[in-house]
């Protein structure tokens, strides 16, 4: 798979570090939608997401002079934003954060796929519009923060495994494990949902035949 989505845009680090406002606004303009999307999916509230975006760039602005450029600047922004979002979540729902549990979970075996329905053939608009879309949003929101963070960075923002690991301060192995766990969980949910839709789509036809 390709690297990060915003990896193609390059910024002058020298200008950014020197406090060049035009260059910083260029960075904000080209990355803020991604940061917002990430924050929105982590927190579920547009207001909180907006706060996270503002905090992210304020922190970046302050930290830029010392930014060494060891990681890609967009990965660095994702890292700041994710920290902000997780901090906000932790304040709101401390019970969702037991680091030990997360690490224990990394050791567990993957739960076996349960739903075996091939719903891939459903028409595209059935899969991504209206009610389905709401269901998909909820399914992502139901993942634990630890799994959601990995899934969003890797699969939605399309960071590489390595970049995701850097943004979350995790090992690449932990990223791969959590990513697969998140994908499998979502697949179960979606299979159950679309499986039902396929059945209910068939029933009227069966009724007519009988």
């Amino acid at each position: 798979m390709s690297g990060s989505k915003s990896g193609t845009t390059s910024y002058s680090l020298t200008a950014l570090r020197a406090g060049d406002r035009a260059e910083f606004s260029h960075l904000v303009e080209s990355t803020s939608d991604s940061i917002y999307r990430l924050a929105l999916r982590m927190l579920g509230s547009p207001q909180d997401a907006e706060d996270v975006v503002q905090e992210t760039y304020l922190k970046a602005l302050r930290a830029l002079p010392g930014f060494e450029g060891r990681s890609n600047i967009t990965t660095w922004l994702y890292r700041i934003a994710m920290n902000e979002a997780l901090m906000m979540l932790r304040k709101r729902k401390p019970e969702a954060f037991f680091l030990e549990d997360m690490e224990k979970e990394d050791e567990e075996e993957f739960s076996e796929p349960y739903q075996i329905v091939d719903w891939c053939c459903l028409p595209e608009n059935e899969l991504i519009s209206g009610e389905s879309r709401k269901f998909l949003d909820t399914a992502v929101a139901k993942l634990s923060p630890a799994l959601r963070a990995v899934f969003l960075l890797r699969d939605v923002e399309k960071l590489s495994i390595q970049e995701t690991a850097a943004a979350l301060n995790l090992s690449e192995t932990a990223v791969k494990t959590r990513l697969l766990r998140a994908r499998l969980k979502l697949r179960e949910e979606l299979s159950e949902y679309f499986g039902e839709r396929m059945k209910s789509g068939l029933e009227p036809m069966l009724g007519q035949a009988g």
């Binding site: 910083f24 606004s25 904000v28 803020s32 939608d33 917002y36 999307r37 929105l40 999916r41 547009p46 907006e50 975006v53 503002q54 760039y57 304020l58 602005l61 329905v117 091939d118 719903w119 891939c120 899969l127 991504i128 879309r133 998909l136 949003d137 992502v140 699969d155 939605v156 399309k158 994908r183 499998l184 979502l186 697949r187 979606l190 299979s191």
Partner: peptide
Amino acid sequence: TLRKTVEIIQEISADEAMSQEARQRLFARL
């Protein structure tokens, strides 16, 4: 279905963006 799961979530996320008002507030704050 695993592939399709990732694909459709990518698809519904691609067009999510900040509102113009939120963007204005961000630029003002900065």
